[in-house]
Design a protein around this nucleic acid. Structure first.
Lengths: 236, 236
DNA sequence: ACCTGAACACCGTTCAAGT
DNA sequence: ACCTGAACACCGTTCAAGT
């Protein structure tokens, strides 16, 4: 009668419980810590038991991506709809930035999502909604199709940054020294960095998905798409 | 005296030979086939011997990326310089598309490069040159810095596509049938795909780094950056 | 100095066996 | 039906030992 919510290990295993535990494990310990054995241990079970709920590890990873995309769809569902046909740009912007807040809670998602080979239902649903916003804004299917490709993962709120240092792995003094040494080889990079004056002086363009840079690039794309839309409509 | 060029297995091992063999192996059999054991076998040696030339597998992967980036720098070095200060956009475009031709010869590069945490010398050099083009075009360091972030991996000629099916894994009939079934759930996606009529009808936005889509997005970014530059110069 | 063989600590996954 | 233990075929990597 009185169910003990904490004693999750006593509830029967289900696919959903397995996937939810996998997401928690990845959030807490990183995606490399998500192994069949460690996941089983967290669930108080042997590794082989998991194969009753997931076909194999790939299926597990498909499942955790699906779970996060459902979380994104939920977050996005509370958004206000477009106020008019000319509002597509603002709606798209807040939609993508909302998705991004969810992705930032699951930092491992980009790397896993990029290894998926099929779009899950929740992913299809998300992109269907994105497409609907473009269509409401007056995009032809052809232009909307280019737009979806151009946005790529940015539509889901992330871009895979190149060369982001592992957290805590940066020795600032050492990095600064290394940079001084290559001043002769790459003087412009050194000068640029001394001018923009990051908190982290060693991270040239390698800074994980910083919010400001994300929005800068997103606005560049959205403005560009607006221009392509205007060109398309002028042609008619 | 007469060196047999084919008998590579008899030449003494060097770091360069190890890295070059690793690149070949990845090109031929895919990045997942690049293991210490298989690489050793290709070189006619035991796996443990490799540790005299690379510190560990991460170091090996750093090395193969460095090798490809040197290949990109070589390819790009033959390019004509800018014809004038207003030519930065054209120079940047051909530079990036040239880099892309090299990346397409090493399809595994994107996934490996995105797991690197430090920029190798060749990578720094490449980006230094990109920065030089922006500077010659009149960009402030601040704007050029945003531009480098916005381009991200696109500067090197690739974007990690979401959901590109493994080559040869697509069963067209099966995929088409699956799509018909979800017509009710995602009607706009279905309608869009029937209109744009890909060769591969099942790949919604999942199509690996197609040249047309790459150039569409690249031009969007470059035009956007040109606009930001004009805004910046108007402000002075 | 360069290479090797055996071994260790991990993986994902199979299989037959338990309840 | 659900879970388990032992085992297999892989990994990267260590260590002491060969030449």
């Amino acid at each position: 009668m009185v169910t003990d919510e904490k004693a999750t290990s006593r509830k029967p295993l289900t696919r959903d419980r397995v996937l939810a535990a996998a997401v928690e494990l990845a959030d807490e310990a990183g995606i490399e810590a998500l192994t069949m054995r460690s996941l089983a241990e967290r669930l108080g079970v042997e590794a082989m038991s998991l194969y009753h709920y997931v076909a194999n590890k790939e299926d597990l990873l498909d499942g955790v991506c699906e779970l996060v995309l459902e979380e994104i769809n939920d977050a996005v569902a509370e958004q206000p709809p477009a106020t008019g046909p000319d509002d597509w740009q603002g709606v798209m912007r807040t939609r993508i930035l909302t998705a991004r807040t969810v992705v930032l809670r699951h930092k491992w998602l980009p790397s896993v999502l990029e290894t998926r080979t099929t779009m899950s239902p929740a992913t299809l649903y998300y992109h269907h909604d994105i497409l609907a916003i473009f269509r409401a804004g007056g995009f032809s299917y052809d232009l909307a199709h280019h737009a979806l490709h151009a946005l790529g993962s940015r539509a889901i709120g992330f871009t895979q940054e190149l060369f982001d240092p592992a957290p805590g792995s940066v020795d600032e003094d050492e990095a600064m020294e290394a940079f001084q040494q290559m001043a002769a080889q790459v003087p412009l990079l050194v000068e640029m960095l001394s001018e923009v004056a990051h908190e982290d002086p060693e991270s040239t363009i390698g800074w994980c998905d910083d919010q400001t840079e994300f929005e800068f690039a997103l606005d560049l794309m959205l403005e560009g798409l607006a221009r392509r839309l205007a060109e398309e409509q002028a042609r008619r």
